[in-house]
């Protein structure tokens, strides 16, 4: 079957999708967006967290056919999403308003950015969302496999809850497993992002 939907503000179409495929498979294997990770395929790890019409969900548990006509934001689009939210002074999701499809980063441009220069493997110079920057700065990334899902979940939590308590952070991220960090640096990162956000940095 064919599935047409919007990913990171850009219309996408996947053809010959097997009916049993998940949104995660379509993103990773058909649309060239492997940022959302496949770690359990049963909604028990959160590594594939994306926003579906603004709401964080496990992409592995959404049937591909269910996203027809809907809007998905993945980690690849998080920086732009956060930027739009900051510029529009609120929420960038389809749930809180109309996302400007034209403002999304075309995939080709994103790729060119990734492939730029010999320093491409450090990704230096890439524009990041506050939560992405905070994860790097706080040492919240080790193997990084849980990171994309955590970023999407944490970013959404900070959107709803700009000044979370530690217990709020833990609850909001309780669907995202991390095996490397012991979560301490992840807590630091979210606190840091919240603090920077409230300082308007």
């Amino acid at each position: 079957m064919r599935v047409t939907f919007t990913v990171n503000g850009r219309p996408q179409e996947a053809d010959d999708v097997w009916e049993g495929e998940s949104l995660l498979y379509v993103l990773r294997e058909r649309l060239g967006l492997p940022g959302s990770k496949n770690a359990c395929e049963q909604g028990e790890c959160g590594s594939c967290t994306v926003r579906l019409d603004g709401v964080p969900v496990c992409a592995c548990l959404v049937a591909a056919g269910q996203v027809e006509g809907r809007e998905v934001v993945t980690v690849e689009g998080l920086a732009d999403y956060a930027k739009q939210r900051a510029e529009h002074g609120g929420c960038a999701s389809g749930a809180c308003g109309t996302a400007d499809a034209a403002a999304g980063t075309p995939l080709d441009e994103a790729r060119r950015r990734a492939a730029r220069g010999t320093d491409s493997h450090t990704g230096e110079g890439t524009e990041l969302s506050p939560i992405q920057q905070a994860f790097i700065d706080a040492g919240a990334v080790q193997c990084g496999f849980c990171t994309p899902g955590l970023l999407v979940a944490a970013d959404e939590m900070l959107e709803r809850h700009p000044n979370p308590t530690d217990a709020d952070i833990r609850e909001a991220l309780s669907g995202n497993l991390c095996r490397c960090t012991g979560y301490e640096k992840i807590m630091d990162a979210v606190r840091l992002a919240a603090a920077r956000q409230s300082e308007g940095v």
Binding site: E29, P34, I136, G144, F145
Partner: peptide
């Protein structure tokens, strides 16, 4: 010094290619 990971940006943007991401 607590220098930051050289692969950090790639990992937070989803561009870091894990073995399962290769195509």
């Amino acid at each position: 010094e607590s220098t930051l990971r050289p692969d950090g940006t790639l990992k937070v943007t989803g561009e870091f290619a894990y073995s399962s991401d290769m195509w």
